[in-house]
Simulated scan of single mutants.
Amino acid sequence: MYLFSSLVRMLRVWRKYNESLRELSRLGDRELADIGIMRADIQQIAWDAARAD
C-alpha cells in the first residue's frame, strides 16, 4: 500500500511540475524579470513549487 501511495504522490508532483514549467515558460523575459525570475531558474522554481504542495 505504501508503494502505491508513493507512486500516486510522485505522479501528482510530476504533474504540478509540468504545469508550473509550462506556465512560466510561456512568459516573456520582461514578464519574468518583473516577478524576479530569470529564465534559467524556471526548472528549479517549478520543482520547488511542485514539492511544496
Rank of each mutant, 00 (worst) to 15 (best):
R51V: 08
R51A: 07
I42S: 01
M1A: 15
M10E: 15
R15W: 12
S25W: 00
L21T: 04
I45H: 02
D53W: 07
Q44M: 12
Y17H: 11
D34G: 02
S5W: 11
Q44H: 11
K16T: 14
A50C: 06
R51H: 10
K16H: 09
V13S: 07
L11C: 09
R39I: 04
I37L: 04
Q44F: 09
R15L: 13
E31M: 02
M10H: 13
D48K: 10
F4I: 12
L27W: 01
V8P: 13
M1R: 13
L32K: 02
Y17R: 10
R51D: 08
I42Q: 00
I45A: 03
N18I: 10
K16P: 04
R12D: 12
M10T: 15
A49R: 15
R26G: 05
V13L: 08
E19Y: 10
I35F: 04
A33G: 04
A40N: 07
S6V: 08
M10F: 11
E23H: 08
L32P: 00
M38E: 15
W47M: 11
S25E: 05
I45Y: 03
L3D: 15
V13Y: 05
R15G: 12
L32A: 00
S5G: 08
G28A: 03
S20A: 11
S6D: 15
S20V: 07
R26H: 05
R26F: 02
W14E: 15
A33T: 03
S20P: 03
M38F: 06
I42H: 01
R22F: 12
S20G: 08
